[in-house]
Design a protein around this nucleic acid. Structure first.
Lengths: 128, 128
DNA sequence: CGCATAACTTACATTTATGTTAGTACTTGA
DNA sequence: TCAAGTACTAACATAAATGTAAGTTATGCG
């Protein structure tokens, strides 16, 4: 939970309300959000598969990132009433519209990241 | 100062070392970095002018953001041996190469930010 | 029965990012 | 002499992001 009022929050609101670039960055800037976007770019995934493909992230944090992306309208969450439960996440149209943004961020990183293979490699599907 | 070792830091290193997109986001993602990039896009600025154009940021934080951008190679810092001191900041070639990245982040935000004027407005030069 | 699975939630703990306040050295102009 | 300007730094304080570990619910399977 965030504080109701703080200089920190006020500044965030000020910037996101006045800077289109900062607004975009705010939506995609979480620690695991690029990895999630990259995976969902190939199609819907269920929670357990997302989780297995990201062994370094804890359940709580993964859920937090997914919830934020859902409430920002980037992904949708579909529950199948089965047992055991099945929940699938996929990009919304808004999420898909990020494709050129993701591409250019990736290209710039590929050009300039020290140690980059310069191969337009995005997030590795299986992080070590 | 960061801890020498923590899961948090390890994950950051893991991601930035494997995801070009995350690497790029890491360089431009600080609270005031979009505002600074936007201002310096027009040319060099001295510290006091940068500061006056950003009344909401504290001196410490502004310096921190500038130092990070400098150490990441996005901006350069030039000291003129005068009295009173004069220090000018400007984009390096690497910083200038971010222009298309900044444009597309801005365009996406302009299209999708609630309350956006849809006018390709970037960071306002003078935040309220 | 007891264990496994799925998709979480809760309570707690730590790390990192951001912000506040005061102070520094130096010189010029009033 | 005294305030003002310049570009900071230091010590301290708070807020936010991220991480850990265990528990929950419901059912099928051996």
């Amino acid at each position: 939970m965030r504080k109701q009022s703080s200089t920190n929050l006020e500044n965030e609101i000020l910037i996101n309300g006045n800077c289109d670039m900062a607004y975009t960055l705010d939506l995609i800037g979480g620690r695991w959000k690029p990895s999630i976007l990259w995976r969902l770019a190939y199609g819907a995934m269920r929670y357990s598969d997302l989780r297995r493909s990201l062994p370094a992230v804890s359940e709580r944090i993964l859920i937090l990132q997914l919830r934020e992306m859902e409430s920002d309208g980037l992904i949708s969450r579909k529950v199948y009433p089965e047992v055991p439960p099945r929940v699938e996440y996929q990009l919304t149209d808004l999420g898909k519209s990020l494709e050129p943004v993701i591409n250019i961020l990736t290209d710039w990183g590929s050009e300039n990241r020290p140690g980059s293979e310069k191969k337009r490699v995005r997030c590795h599907m299986l992080l070590p």
